[in-house]
Simulated scan of single mutants.
Amino acid sequence: MKIKKVLNNNAVIVNEDGTEKIVMGSGIAFQKKKNDIVPKAKIEKVFVMEDALEYEKFQEILSTLPMEHIKIAEEIISYAEGVLMAPLNDHIHVALTDHLSFAIERLKQGYVIQNKLLAEIKALYKKEYEIGLWAKQRINEQMNIDIPEDEVGYIALHIHTAKMNRTSVKTTLDVTTFISDVVELVEKEFKIKIKDQSVAYQRLLTHLRFAFQRLQEQEPFHEIDEEMLQVIKKNHKKAYQVAEKISSMVKTDYGYELPLSEHAYIALHIQRLAEK
């Protein structure tokens, strides 16, 4: 395996059997140059990216970002794959590394990181959030930087996006923002403060999450018979009106059309939450 290009002391590009790969390992390129042989004992990770743009971005990250940022990001990714017992989308190597490096630099400069979606992230993506907490501890140990919980939430978002085999965190952000807006609307309309750990809250979040994902992926919704729909509209009038407002918000903000059956199901969840 010959070196085609040295990216930094710990990463090189090689060409093996006609396939270009990025090979990483501690000190793998120390005092090495083009056409030198890669020491197999030093190989820790090998990357093959089919997306040319992603491949180019990853090379740029390896060539420009601080090595300690790259190493901690890769450690978090490896830990996440072990906990989730599934490979993450390759884009995570670009997205998380870039995000984490930027966040670390901002914290060093005294900036405050805020995450308005933290409560929803903790409730929706529990495993990913726990991985983020592990990352927080590891970053503190390795770099003596104490990242806030708000940043832990952003790490969880990136991991969840990659777990779902998506390349853009925007899809995950849209779902989480939508749910946050719904919770805020329900609290306002019913003049209540929702308890994050209640069963009714968890059920509402889960339902909204999957409903929004169905809209994104253009999947069919469960039907509801007309008699049941009218009963819900009559018995839970206010909850149904709030569900209609939610539907209007979805159409205005995201361009999706919620079916009437979803108005009813969401109204039922809101009613249970309001009663609690």
Rank of each mutant, 00 (worst) to 15 (best):
K136W: 06
K21T: 09
Q202V: 09
I28N: 06
A80G: 15
K136R: 10
K191T: 10
L133W: 05
A211F: 04
K116L: 07
E16N: 13
G27T: 11
Y256H: 07
K127C: 11
Q213N: 12
E44P: 01
N9L: 03
T206L: 13
Q271H: 07
N235G: 01
E54H: 05
M1G: 15
M1R: 04
L268C: 04
S78R: 12
V242Y: 00
K251W: 00
Q31N: 15
R106W: 04
K116H: 10
M85V: 13
K2M: 06
L62E: 08
E226I: 15
M49C: 05
E54A: 12
Q202D: 03
T176E: 09
E275R: 08
D17S: 15
V83F: 12
P39K: 08
V182Q: 08
M67Q: 08
L7R: 09
P87I: 08
R272M: 14
V186D: 03
H69K: 04
V152H: 13
Q31D: 15
M228W: 00
D196E: 12
S168F: 12
A52W: 04
I155T: 13
I224K: 03
Q31L: 15
G18D: 12
S63I: 07
Q59V: 05
K45A: 14
I43T: 15
T252P: 00
A41I: 10
K21M: 05
I3Y: 10
I194L: 03
A239I: 04
H93T: 10
I61M: 02
I3R: 05
G18R: 11
K233F: 00
H99N: 08
A95W: 02
D51W: 00
E184V: 11
S63M: 06
R272Q: 12
K108D: 01
N10M: 12
L100G: 00
S78F: 10
S261I: 11
V199H: 14
K33R: 11
E75R: 13
Y125F: 03
Q218T: 05
A162V: 02
E50H: 08
A267Q: 08
F221E: 00
A162W: 03
E120H: 01
E189H: 06
T252L: 02
H69P: 04
H207E: 14
K234P: 00
A267K: 02
E262V: 13
Y265D: 11
H236N: 03
K4A: 08
T97V: 13
D146H: 09
D181I: 02
D51K: 02
L229T: 02
I139A: 03
E149I: 10
F30T: 15
P220D: 05
N15W: 03
I147S: 14
E130G: 05
Q109C: 08
E128I: 03
N9K: 04
T172F: 06
E128R: 00
E257N: 06
P148Y: 07
F221P: 00
A29C: 09
K163R: 11
Y254M: 01
P220V: 01
K136Y: 01
N115R: 02
K188L: 04
E44I: 04
V38E: 11
L268M: 06
K193V: 00
